[in-house]
Simulated assay, not measured.
Amino acid sequence: MCGRYASTKAPADLADEFHAVDATAESAQRPDYNVAPTKDITVVVERHPRDDDGAPDPDVTERSLRTVRWGLVPFWAKDPSAGARMVNARSETITEKPAFRRAVASRRCLFPMDGWYEWQRSAAVPKSEGGTGKPTKQPYFTHYADGDTLAMAGIWEFWKPKDGELAEKYPDGLVTACVLTTEAVGALAQVHDRMPLVLSPDAWNDWLDPDAAADAAEVSRLLTPPSPELVSTLEIRPVSPMVNSVRNNNPELLDRIPDDQVQEPIQLDLLS
């Protein structure tokens, strides 16, 4: 969790919404209804611009949309394969983990998205009782009821190999990112015990501020779970198992499926 999401808005629209400069250029992604780990994605960052000599201007910050790879590769990693295992980071322990603590101190970002997918797992029902004998996984899609863009807390890191074949393959290095997760709040816990760390718009500035204090106490203040009030603005709907395959990528993945197709349906006031 979070292992899949949808991001369909144009970079220019996201730039307006997040008051950012679109720096994705030709690398901007097309609408993606099934964003999966290791894909190139769009994130929002805020940095001090650098001069021709690479020195940052401490008096100026610039917010921009950037293209990165989903799956954080620690700066000390020998190769980028570690990123496939680091698509999420637990907010409760992120300041302690060597792979994440440097990034969370000064390299925070936002993952803009339409919504995220989560799978509710149910115990297997024996065939003798009319079941399949296998556990079921019913996917749900969670989004803002009014269609606004969700902003997930994330961190990013820069990795560059020193020499060899990897240096030839990644001459400019690799920028990667991961989503922060927290305990599920309210009715969302009926689907899964974890959820992405959703940030309300009034928290974006503090989260993106590259000069925020790097000590654990200050960073922890930014890692609190979303409020029940924010969660109450979300809607959840059961969607087709087609989303299980990354090969499927179309608007129909977001459609609510009929009640008689829902495996182990749950009762939620948030269901759309």
Rank of each mutant, 00 (worst) to 15 (best):
G154M: 08
T142Q: 09
T132R: 11
P161I: 03
D148A: 14
P135L: 14
Q190P: 06
A167R: 12
T149G: 01
L166M: 08
T182V: 08
M152N: 08
C178A: 10
G154V: 06
A153W: 01
L180S: 02
A184C: 10
L180K: 01
I155N: 00
E129Q: 15
E157M: 05
G154Q: 05
H143E: 15
F158M: 12
T176N: 01
T181C: 02
T181I: 10
T142R: 05
Y140G: 10
A153N: 02
D148W: 06
G131Q: 12
L174I: 09
L166T: 01
P161S: 06
G130C: 13
G147A: 12
T132S: 15
P161M: 06
T136E: 15
A177V: 06
A145P: 08
L150F: 04
V185Q: 10
T132M: 14
C178W: 03
K137P: 10
G133N: 13
E157Y: 01
W159S: 01
Y170H: 07
G164E: 09
Q190N: 11
E157F: 04
V175W: 00
T181H: 02
L150Q: 05
T181W: 02
K160L: 13
D148R: 14
Q190E: 12
A145D: 11
E157N: 04
A167H: 06
T181P: 01
T132I: 13
G154W: 04
T149W: 00
A151K: 00
Y140A: 11
P139L: 06
G131I: 13
Y144H: 14
C178G: 04
W159H: 00
L150Y: 02
Y144V: 05
D146M: 09
P139T: 06
K137H: 14
A151G: 03
A189H: 11
P135E: 14
E129R: 15
F158V: 09
E165T: 08
P135Y: 12
P135K: 10
E183Y: 09
K137Q: 14
A187S: 13
Q190S: 10
